[in-house]
Design a protein around this nucleic acid. Structure first.
Length: 678
DNA sequence: CCGCCTCGAGTTCT
DNA sequence: CTCGAGGCGG
């Protein structure tokens, strides 16, 4: 590949998108896509120094000031910050930085502030009067936006804003802050713009930039803006503060807003923990932020530690792992589910996201794919939903290759090549061939899985192999496998075959509800299967049931009834049941008398939800423990939930429980409630 | 008919 | 974990 051509292409693209972003406030591509282009250019230039030119966009920091605003030279250069993307990197930063601590420095303390995503501005006051407001610009020269900032409520026009006895205004004060648009204001503004048929903003940051850079301050959208101040750039007279924490308090007394959710903390580990805790809460906050800033509290010490380039040694930006990245979609593949649904997925050029390498992502269904107009070969934006499962947000249209074709929904199943069906009004596309090997593989996988027949020694690979070799034509064939057949297969020796046969034999004793769930009847999972087992007691009674009989069961409606009757009306399915019966699989409800009366039920009727990882109990163990005491465990938090059991790395359920005022328990409290010692 | 509460189904990576 | 949709109660 021709590196020189690539570098030139990247420069053209980066310059154009930077212009759209910085000058027009109208980004043409997502931030993550821009970042990807920029860092590729940086990397290539680092590897090939001979290709670097003075006019490369990497040689310029920030955007060019607009011509229409007057230019302003800053009193002191506006600094940047070193970045850390993990707790380990923060510790590394401090290990390096602390070598520069002066000998007489007090024990280190820190201030943690959110790193708000807005526009850095510099405000100048003379004899208590606001005289100049400027953008950051390139760090040395910014733009005069005094008129617009004047209309922002959070900018005090005089300091002290309120009478404060004994507090005199400094003769001259230059403070630095971040102008931003709170999330609620951003949504309100976009609603308004949409109503008027005007263009909406992509995110609060761009909206804030748009507000501040409007030429006519009266029409300015600055009433939607706010501003937090957090640093003094220059000061002449007034009160001197020794620490950052005191400085924030002093700014507040003068009438400035300071960053919310900030903390004064006496050890680095606690500061890191605070930052991590804060990151978990960030979705519930009213501002956008991409991390926290950890600063050394003692100002004179911070000053003495000096700089690395433009970055002060005494502070670090502790940023989130990116939640968004761009990469190329190599191919759109199709999975066949156990119910026959065809599900598209994306094969991606591997990309780092939130600390892991992503190379595949679900595309949900064909409607979704068409709505987003995702095509093979596109550069796409990938996010991790709920910080776990990656999904494709959409294509970057500006980077689409000329020949890219819209994706066509396949007319036939990619595995068995039978025609597909799509029911009126339904999203799903089905392969209706019940003999489709792909469906059988997934059904076998489901049948042997932990929630169903739970056959030990029988994993995903085993199932796929046995189907491929023709040893399984349906799930009941599992009970007719002979050791001598298995021994012929690659990688199957005495020991493994013995384990597998024992696992299969043991599974014949599973309760009826497990068997019903294992069959894979559409709409019948573990909960519905238990309802059916309790109501009918045996598979024969269930097979004899009519739709009306089924609907009489609490929790079973018309859809599931129809699905069950249809399942048993198919000859092949009835044969599977008979084969299971002949093999000795239990097909009737077992007696559970002892269990039912022995259990004391202090938790009768209470509903529990479990989230995160508990210290000693597995999720399954906690569930049975609660059920043995008469409680019920469900999956989602609602007003009806009595307790949320919280473990390590709890997710969105905890937020929801807090919002609804649902009490939470940790494992120890749960044990206490149940009277079970650890 | 609407709004909740649940359940089922599919999903990724280490 | 999230999404979609079934079931139920108001």
């Amino acid at each position: 590949m021709d590196v020189r051509a690539r570098v030139e292409e990247l420069r053209r693209q980066v310059s154009y998108y930077a212009y759209r972003y910085y000058v027009l406030d109208d980004p043409a591509i997502p931030d993550a896509a821009y970042d990807a282009l920029f860092s590729e250019l940086e990397r290539l230039e680092a590897e090939h120094p001979d290709l670097v030119t003075p006019d490369s966009p990497t040689r310029r920091v920030g955007g060019p000031p607009l011509d229409r605003f007057a230019k302003v030279r800053h009193a002191a250069p506006i600094l940047s910050l070193a970045n850390a993307t993990s707790a380990g990197e923060v510790r590394d930063w401090w290990k390096r930085a602390s070598k520069f601590l002066p000998g007489d420095a007090p024990p280190p303390e820190f201030v943690v502030e959110p790193k708000i995503d807005g526009l850095t501005v510099v405000l100048t006051y003379e004899d208590g009067t606001f005289v100049l407001g400027a953008t950051r610009g390139d760090g040395e020269i910014g733009e005069d936006i005094t008129a617009n900032l004047r209309t922002v409520q959070a900018v005090p026009l005089r300091i002290p804003l309120l009478p404060d006895d004994g507090l005199a205004a400094p003769r001259r004060l230059v403070v630095r802050g971040e102008a931003f648009m709170p999330n609620d204001k951003f949504r309100a503004l976009n609603r308004l713009l949409a109503e008027r048929g005007e263009k909406t903003f992509a995110n609060p940051r761009n909206a804030a930039a748009g507000g501040l850079r409007q030429l006519d301050p009266v029409a300015s959208r600055s009433r939607y803006l706010s501003l937090y101040c957090y640093a003094i750039v220059a000061q002449d007279g007034g009160t001197r503060t020794e620490t950052q924490w005191e400085l924030l308090a002093y700014l507040r007394r003068l009438g400035f807003l300071t960053p919310p959710d900030s903390a004064h903390i006496d050890s680095l580990d606690a500061a890191i923990a605070y930052g991590e805790e804060w990151m978990r809460r960030r979705d519930s906050l009213n501002y956008e932020a991409d991390g926290v800033v950890i600063k050394l509290n003692h100002l004179a010490t911070a000053q003495a530690m000096g700089f690395v380039g433009k970055d002060p040694r005494s502070a670090v930006a502790f940023k989130f792992p990116a939640r968004e990245a761009t990469t190329r979609l190599l191919r759109i593949g199709i999975n066949v589910g156990r119910t026959g649904t065809l599900n598209p997925y994306a094969e991606l050029e591997p990309v780092q996201l939130g600390g892991v390498t992503i190379e595949r992502a679900t595309l949900h269904n064909f409607d979704d794919l068409a709505r987003k107009d995702i095509r093979e070969g596109d550069v796409v934006v990938v996010q991790r939903a709920g910080d776990v499962i990656p999904y494709v947000v959409g294509p970057v249209l500006e980077l689409r290759l000329p020949g890219a074709q819209p994706y066509q929904v396949p007319a036939e199943c990619p595995v068995c090549h039978q025609p597909v069906r799509r029911n009126e009004g339904e999203v799903a596309v089905y392969c209706v061939n019940s003999a489709c090997p792909a469906q059988l593989v997934r059904l076998v996988e489901h049948f042997v899985s932990r929630g169903a027949m739970d056959i030990e020694g029988f994993g995903t690979n085993t199932g796929a192999l046995l189907v491929e070799k023709g040893l399984l034509k349906d799930v009941a064939d599992i009970y007719y496998l002979r050791p001598e057949q298995l021994l012929q297969l690659e990688g199957f020796k005495d020991k493994k075959v013995g384990n597998l046969m024992a696992g299969i034999a043991a599974s014949k004793e599973r309760p009826l509800a497990r068997v019903l769930a294992a069959l894979g009847i559409r709409g019948v999972g573990s909960v519905v299967a238990q309802l059916l087992a309790d109501a009918f007691g045996s598979i024969d009674a269930l097979m004899a049931a009519r739709e009306e009989d089924l609907q009489n069961v609490e929790g079973i409606g018309p859809e599931i009834s129809r699905s069950i009757v249809e399942y048993f009306s198919i000859e092949g399915n009835r044969q599977v049941i008979e084969k299971l019966r002949r093999a000795g699989v239990r097909l009737a409800q077992e007696r559970r008398a002892a269990e039912a009366q022995a259990a004391p039920a202090p938790l009768n009727g209470k509903t529990f939800v479990i989230t995160g990882t508990l210290p000693t109990l597995s999720r399954e163990e906690a569930k049975t423990l609660i059920e043995q005491h008469g409680g019920k465990v469900t999956d989602s938090v609602s007003r009806k939930t009595d307790y949320l059991v919280v473990g390590e790395a709890a997710g969105s359920k905890l937020d929801k429980a807090r919002a609804l005022g649902v009490p939470t328990l940790d494992e120890a409290q749960l044990r206490a409630l149940l009277g079970v010692p650890s």
